[in-house]
Structure formats: structure tokens, C-alpha cells
Amino acid sequence: MNRRTTLVGALALTTGLALTGCSTDSKPELKVVGAFMPQPVSDMAAGFLVVQNTGSTTDRLTSVTSPLSDDVTIHETKNQKMREVSSFEVPANGELDLERGGNHIMFMKLKQQPKKGEKVPVELHFEKADPITVDLPVKETTHNPKKH
């Protein structure tokens, strides 16, 4: 009986130490690159960027805000149809790619028409990480860096 108690105690201690190594103290390490907005031709616009996560914890992009519009949402594109979603995963040691023809930020009912050369400020909100403020440079309407 004494041997069994010792074994159970040792297993409990080992399990506790193993779980300590997986502590939730690690945070996602996020950085935004390649941000842009094609110059809008109506009262709607789209935004594109890449969120890189060099941390060991997955995060989620949950919303985007901007002074350009009170109605900013995130959309996924599947089978050439877009629909609003509540969040996008930003994988640990990976990236979330918001690109033309794919997932993107959607701005509705623009308060003004940004022109090529201007910058549109946005704030990205995440489940775990602090918000990130990014300026989206306004590019020509047909700009698509993936086609180069």
C-alpha cells in the first residue's frame, strides 16, 4: 500500500511540473506587415494586411475599428462568396493573411473617400494581445501585391 501511495504522489508531482511548463503566461507576439487599402470607388472599401505571430500562443483577431467608418467588419471568402465572421485565428508561429480574393477587412458607409497616397488608421483588436494601430496606405484601385 505504501508503494502505491508513493507512486501516485510521484505521478501527481510530475504531472504538475509538466503542466507548469505549459503555463498561460506566454503571449502571442504580433506584428502587422503589408497593409494597404485600394482606393475606394464607392462608399465601401476593403483593407488587406498580414498579422504575423512569432509567439508560441495562438490568438484571434476579433474586430477592427477605424475613424473612416462606424461599420467595419471582417469577412471570409469561400467559393467566391464573402460573409462576415466574428473572428480569425492568428496561429502560433504563423500568420493571418488578409488578401485580395480572400479574407479581408470591410469598411461600409465611408465618412470620406480616401485618395491614393493617403493613410487610413485602423485598430486591430485581439482576444489575448493588446490592440495594434496600423495605417493602411491607400493604393491605386487595382493594387495587388500578390500578382507581382
Rank of each mutant, 00 (worst) to 15 (best):
G117V: 05
P40D: 05
E76P: 00
K78A: 14
T65I: 06
E29K: 15
L136V: 03
G16R: 06
V33H: 05
V64H: 10
V120Q: 11
Q52Y: 03
R83V: 07
D25A: 10
P67L: 07
V122S: 03
D59M: 03
K81W: 09
P38H: 01
K119V: 06
L11V: 10
K119N: 13
Q112P: 00
P40Y: 04
N79H: 11
C22S: 09
A46S: 10
K115Q: 12
S63P: 07
T62D: 08
S86N: 14
G94P: 08
P40I: 04
T20Q: 11
V32D: 01
L124E: 05
G101P: 14
K146P: 00
V138R: 09
G117S: 06
D135Q: 14
S42A: 08
G21S: 08
T58N: 13
L110I: 01
Q39I: 02
G21P: 00
N103Y: 03
N53P: 04
L49G: 01
G101M: 12
R83D: 12
T133W: 00
G16D: 09
K139Y: 00
G34F: 01
G9E: 01
G55L: 07
K115C: 00
L49H: 01
M108D: 07
T141A: 15
T141R: 10
V134D: 02
P145V: 08
G21W: 05
G101F: 09
V72M: 11
T142H: 07
V120D: 12
K31L: 06
A46Y: 14
T57V: 15
V134G: 05
P67G: 13
D71Y: 07
V8C: 05
V64W: 12
L96T: 02
S66N: 09
K116W: 00
S56T: 13
K78G: 03
L49N: 02
S23M: 05
F36M: 06
P28S: 15
L19Y: 06
A129E: 05
V122K: 01
Q39H: 04
G102T: 04
K119F: 10
A35V: 02
S86G: 14
S69F: 11
R60W: 11
R83E: 15
T141Y: 05
S69V: 12
I74W: 08
L110F: 03
T73L: 10
L30I: 09
M106A: 13
E127G: 00
I105L: 11
F36Q: 06
M108K: 12
L98M: 08
A10S: 05
G102Q: 10
A92S: 15
T54K: 12
V64F: 11
P114D: 03
K109L: 03
T62Y: 04
K146H: 11
N53C: 07
G34P: 04
